[in-house]
Design a binder for these strands. Structure first.
Length: 445
RNA sequence: GGUCCCGUAGCCAAGUGGCUAAGGCAGCGGACUGCAACUCCGCCAUCGUCGGUUCGAAUCCGAUCGGGACCUCCA
């Protein structure tokens, strides 16, 4: 397995800290709204990372947090005139529903900031004790000048930044890049701390959770490319201060989704939510996997339709093979080995282990689909069909492409054979009736 | 001002020094078929522009044009 590491800016061989185990953390959502299709990219991609490692035999400890205390949450709760707890509960559930719809697993450790106050305040206290943070009027800031490596991840010189380019400079800070660890809060949900009532800063939340949950450096830390600076830079600064390491061996960042239809641009304020996707979510998942994860992902109606149709095509082949094999009761048979199929499988895995090159992996999946279609046109190629089908299933599992089919009932089998007989006897009225029924059952497609 | 991406056929997208530039969609031409759908076979690009390095470049360097990200809480 080779992975591009933002920290070293190069592709590196993956070496787990503990053999056979991958400890990974992905920055989760701030739960104040539904997630949009851009948020869906890491949800899909890092799920595939996890599945790939699991296929390779690793135990993956996957953690992704919920930021459930934040200014945006306070603002949104006021807008909707509900309390913050109700708001975050609503959107945590909505998030998990979307994750499920996108075909990613929801079975992972998902710590909430509000439930980690003790570890977080302890973490901040340690930073103050060791001289890396300072308190001003109930706020606590991290002192970036105390961190000699500050800028190591994002390759920035702290004094060359255009200060206040987006946000007014806060004069309580010793240096404009100093970031908030604890923020004095007068409204909304607040927590007590040695520095008075307030709430934790976002950057310290993730760092403290990782510290508490894993207790050591982790293998992989992931998130969107926009998090490189300042969020992940700040996480590294804190870990470096307390533990003299970079928090994670490998930092992975997915590129952004680009909507090139101006009518749907962010500047127009029209955001597409995952919950509002009208196509099969698997089509969207395939679209996401069709592009290398670090490259920008082009999204528009045409690309969405292309991949949705592609998914229909793949699904059709899979389903036809499934029923063809079920009809002759071969689904549970032992598959033989065929070099042509082994090669496609191996190439697929090679692509996946080459920094998760899903775009290349898909070409081998397409080749397998084609092979399966060729074999289904032949009269008696069931052995090789079975082998191809089983391998396609493996690829589906790694990519998280979901399809559930029910095995044929006795009635289904009768209907199928009746259809075949009707065609043979040139009773086309009856054949068409049966074809329609079989299509409704999903057996013919 | 700083850091960093990208520009490959109508569309999406691999490839990052060397056989005739993957793959998919769309298109075109065939085959199969009771009809239709599905499916299969075949065809379809010299890599934004200019210059340089090299025996050899889409791949390296420079310039230029065009698009984009980040520079305090946005995946």
């Amino acid at each position: 397995m080779r992975i591009f590491n933002t920290l070293t800016h190069s592709v590196e061989p993956f070496k787990p800290i503990h053999p056979g185990t991958v400890n990974m953390y992905v920055c989760g959502p701030t739960v104040y709204n539904f997630i949009h299709i851009g948020n869906a990219r890491p949800v899909i991609f890092f799920d595939v990372v996890r599945r790939t490692f699991e296929y390779l035999g690793y135990t993956v400890n996957f953690v992704s947090n919920f930021t459930d205390v934040d200014d945006k949450i306070i603002t949104r709760a006021k807008e909707l005139e509900i309390d913050e707890i109700a708001l975050t509960q609503t959107f945590i559930k909505a998030f998990l529903d979307d994750v499920e719809r996108l075909g990613s697993t929801t079975k992972y450790l998902a710590p909430k900031a509000t439930e980690y106050m003790q570890p977080i305040t302890n973490y901040i206290a340690q930073l103050i004790d060791q001289g890396f943070a300072y308190e001003v009027d109930g706020d606590v800031y991290f002192d970036v000048k105390k961190s000699p490596e500050y800028g190591i991840l994002s390759n920035r010189q702290i004094d060359e930044q255009e200060l206040g380019s987006r946000i007014a400079v806060n004069d309580k800070k010793r240096h404009p890049l100093d970031f908030t660890l604890w923020k004095k809060t007068t409204e909304g949900v607040k927590f007590s701390s040695p520095w008075g009532e307030g709430r934790p800063g976002w950057h310290t939340e993730c760092a403290a959770m990782i510290d508490d949950i894993f207790g050591e450096k982790i293998d992989i830390h992931g998130g969107g490319a926009d998090l490189v600076f300042p969020h992940h830079e700040n996480e590294i600064a804190q870990a470096n201060a307390l533990h003299h390491h970079h928090l994670a061996n490998i930092w992975m960042h997915n590129g952004h989704l680009q909507i090139d239809d101006s009518k749907m641009s962010k500047s127009e304020g029209t955001v597409i939510y995952v919950k509002d996707l009208t196509v099969d979510p698997m089509g969207f998942r395939l679209l996401t996997l069709g592009t290398y994860y670090r490259a920008p992902l082009m999204f528009n109606d045409e690309t969405l339709n292309t991949y949705t149709n592609e998914w229909e095509r793949i699904k059709r082949t899979y389903s036809q093979a499934f029923y063809a094999l079920d009809l002759i009761e071969m689904l549970d048979s032992e598959a033989k080995n065929y070099p042509d199929i082994e090669i496609l499988h191996d190439r697929f895995i090679d692509a996946m282990t080459d920094d998760f090159n899903t775009a290349n992996a898909l070409t081998h999946l397409y080749a397998l689909v084609k092979l399966l279609n060729q074999k289904m046109r032949e009269e008696d190629a069931f052995d090789i069909m079975l082998a191809a089908f089983n391998n396609l299933k493996i690829m589906f599992n790694i990519l998280g492409l979901r399809i559930s089919l029910k095995r044929l009932s006795k009635a289904d089998r009768h209907m199928y054979h009746a259809w075949k007989d009707a065609r043979k006897n040139r009773d086309f009225d009856r054949a068409d009736q049966l074809r329609e029924k079989l299509s409704e059952r999903g057996i013919l497609s």
